[in-house]
Simulated assay, not measured.
Amino acid sequence: MAKQKPSTMLKLLKTLIGVSVIAAASIGATLLYYEKTGLGLASAESPADAPPERKAVPLPAPIFIPLDPFTVTVRNENSQRILYVAITLRTADDPSRRMIVEFMPEVRDRALRKLAEQQPDRVQTPEGRQALVATLSKTLQDPYLPHSKGPDITSVLFTAFVVQ
């Protein structure tokens, strides 16, 4: 029995040493990870080394220009339907807003012509509506004479869209 006691003591000692090595390796790896990612204690203790905080730049308020709703007859080879759509334009800046307001009759005419060209089955699909947004955006951003540059329209938004 005297031989079993040192054997169990030796096993216990080996187990404790193994656990200690694993714990030390785990702690070391964790500290290394935190140091490399900037989350470590060193960065918290030395704020002088930290980059200066940037102040948040306030975003400009959105500029929306609602257009009066449109009611248009849209046709395909088999039928004709009514398209009722309300559109709001979002512009990037105030000069674009002023240009749209100043040329509102021409803006509405361009939009009305593009809406009347649509196929009723096509505009009822998400892809068709997305294509209509792209078409309207391009058409409404064309220059309005005598200006050499058109308004900067960032979004064409449908606020009502019905096909009957």
Rank of each mutant, 00 (worst) to 15 (best):
E53H: 01
D93L: 15
G18P: 02
P66F: 07
R90T: 12
R90Y: 04
Y33D: 02
I87P: 10
K36V: 14
V21N: 06
F70I: 05
L67P: 00
S26E: 00
A44R: 10
A23T: 12
I27S: 10
T37G: 05
S79Y: 11
D49R: 05
P95G: 15
R90L: 09
R54T: 04
Y84R: 13
A23K: 04
R81Q: 05
S20D: 15
P95N: 11
A23F: 01
F70H: 05
E35A: 13
V57E: 07
I63P: 00
F70N: 08
T37V: 13
D94H: 12
I87W: 01
I87V: 11
T37A: 09
R81F: 01
A92N: 14
T91F: 05
D68M: 02
V19A: 13
L32H: 15
T37Q: 10
P60S: 08
A50G: 00
A50T: 05
A23V: 11
I17F: 15
V85S: 15
F70M: 11
K55L: 03
P58H: 00
P95R: 12
A92W: 09
P52Q: 08
T37N: 05
A86F: 14
G40C: 05
F64Q: 00
Y33C: 03
A86N: 14
I82P: 05
S96P: 13
I65W: 03
L83P: 02
N78H: 01
T71R: 14
A24N: 15
I27T: 15
Y34I: 02
A61K: 01
D94L: 14
T91I: 12
I22K: 06
A25T: 08
R90C: 02
S79L: 06
T71H: 01
P58I: 03
S46G: 01
P58K: 04
I87H: 03
N76Q: 10
G18S: 09
F70G: 02
V57Q: 06
T71S: 13
A29Q: 11
Y34L: 13
T91V: 15
P47V: 04
E35R: 12
Q80Y: 10
R90A: 14
Y33K: 10
A56Y: 00
L41Q: 03
D49T: 05
R81W: 00
E45M: 13
S96H: 09
V74W: 05
E35L: 07
A44G: 08
V57C: 01
I22M: 05
I82A: 03
L32A: 12
P58A: 03
Y34Q: 13
I82R: 08
T73S: 08
A42P: 07
L31P: 04
G28R: 12
A42N: 09
R81T: 11
E35D: 15
A23I: 11
G18D: 07
R75H: 12
E45D: 06
P47A: 06
V19E: 12
T73G: 07
